[in-house]
């Protein structure tokens, strides 16, 4: 399994990670190496094996429908990079 620079760019965009163009090839090499390591999995037949998403073989626990959280906007927005009038600001989004 070997990843091309184009594939690295495509995944980097999906993950919204800016990667220095000089380093794309190095990432492609590292990621290809890791994928090769991972590809050891393909040697074994798992046709009849049930996937295991979680170590706990249990059902989800639910909570009662109660309002337990109250306004903490001030505390939460103290650590925000850019806010105005109680809103988080981002560069203009065009729909």
């Amino acid at each position: 399994m070997s990843l091309t620079s184009d594939e690295v760019n495509r995944i980097a965009f999906l993950a919204r990670l800016a990667i220095d163009p000089d380093k794309i090839d190095a990432y492609a090499k590292d990621l290809s190496g890791i994928m090769n390591f991972i590809d050891e999995m393909s040697a074994i037949d798992t046709e009849t094996v049930l996937p295991m998403a979680h170590p706990l073989d249990q059902a989800q626990r639910l909570r009662p429908d109660e309002v337990t959280e109250h306004n903490q906007r001030e505390a939460f927005q103290k650590i925000a990079p850019k806010v105005e009038a109680g809103l988080y600001l981002v560069p203009k989004v065009i729909e």
Binding site: R63, E66, V67, T68, E69, R73, A85, G86, Y88
Partner: peptide
């Protein structure tokens, strides 16, 4: 009354980000 995964209220029309 509360959100699907949290205990914040779901009332409509509150001041921005006061029910988050």
């Amino acid at each position: 009354k509360s959100k699907i995964f949290s205990g914040a209220a779901t009332l409509y029309g509150a001041e921005p980000n006061t029910q988050a």
